[in-house]
C-alpha cells in the first residue's frame, strides 16, 4: 500500500491546508494548482488516490477525470466541490469518480473515506458484501420509493418529480425521506455513490 495522494485545487489555502492535513494523518500528499499541472506532472506509481476540485480555472476536475480514464490510469479519484448540486454529483460518479464530497466537509470523514477507498483499491475493488448490502436495501423500497430514487439519482428536483409522478411536492418529500432512511444514506452524495456503485458493477434493469 502506497501513501501517495495527489491534491488538485486552484485555491491556495485549500490546497495547502489539505496537504498539511493529509501529511499529519500519515499520507504523502503532493499538491497541484491545476488539472493541467497534475496531468503533466503526476507519477502514476507514487499516487494511490487523487483528490480534485470540480471548479477550477482552466480544465475542470471532471474533464481531468475523463482525460485520466482515457490514459487508462485507474487510481480512484475523489471529487470535491463547493457547488453541491445533484447533476454535478451524478456526472462525477458516472465519469468514474470514487466519491463526491461537498465543501466544507468534516476532515475526519474525508480522511476515513480516503482510507476506505485506498484499502478498497488495494483489495481490488468494491467488496461484493457492500454491493449485496446496497441491493438488499433497494429491494426493501416500495414501488413509489424506487421511482423517487431513480429520479433523484438522475438529478431531478422534487418539484419536477412531483409533476412526473402526478403527486404533490410534499408527497415526494415524504417518499424521499423514507427512501433515504431505508437506503441508510447519510447524504445525497452518499445515495448517489451507492447507486452508481451498483450501476458500474452490474447495470440494473431500466425501470
Amino acid at each position: 500500500m502506497t501513501d501517495g495522494i495527489c491534491i488538485v485545487d486552484d485555491d491556495d489555502a485549500v490546497r495547502d491546508s489539505l496537504r498539511m492535513l493529509l501529511s499529519v494523518k500519515g499520507f504523502k500528499p503532493q499538491a497541484f494548482a491545476s488539472a493541467e499541472a497534475f496531468l503533466d506532472g503526476f507519477d502514476p506509481e507514487g499516487c494511490c488516490c487523487v483528490i480534485a476540485d470540480v471548479c477550477m480555472r482552466g480544465m475542470s476536475g471532471l474533464e481531468m477525470l475523463e482525460r485520466l480514464r482515457e490514459r487508462h490510469a485507474s487510481m480512484p479519484v475523489i471529487i470535491i466541490t463547493a457547488h453541491g448540486d445533484v447533476p454535478t454529483a451524478v456526472a462525477a460518479m458516472k465519469a468514474g469518480a470514487a466519491d463526491f464530497i461537498e465543501k466544507p466537509y468534516d476532515n475526519a470523514l474525508l480522511v476515513s473515506r480516503i482510507r476506505q477507498i485506498v484499502s478498497l483499491r488495494d483489495q481490488g475493488g468494491v467488496s461484493s458484501e457492500v454491493v449485496r448490502g446496497i441491493r438488499e436495501r433497494i429491494e426493501q423500497l416500495s414501488r413509489r420509493e424506487r421511482e423517487v430514487l431513480d429520479l433523484v439519482a438522475a438529478g431531478i428536483s422534487n418539484k419536477v418529480i412531483a409533476g412526473r409522478l402526478g403527486v404533490s411536492t410534499r408527497t415526494v418529500e415524504i417518499h424521499r425521506a423514507h427512501m433515504m432512511e431505508k437506503m441508510e444514506a447519510e447524504s445525497l452524495s452518499d445515495l448517489i455513490r451507492m447507486v452508481t456503485t451498483i450501476d458500474i458493477l452490474s447495470p440494473r434493469d431500466s425501470g
Binding site: 485555491d11 489555502a13 485549500v14 495547502d16 491546508s17 489539505l18 498539511m20 492535513l21 501529511s23 499529519v24 494523518k25 470535491i80 463547493a82 465543501k103 466544507p104 466537509y105 468534516d106 476532515n107 475526519a108 480522511v111
Partner: peptide, 14 residues
C-alpha cells in the same frame, strides 16, 4: 466562502 471554510476545517484537523 466555502473555500476558506474548507481550508479552516483542514487546518484545524492538522
Amino acid at each position: 466562502i466555502n473555500q476558506p471554510l474548507t481550508a479552516i476545517v483542514n487546518y484545524i484537523g492538522v
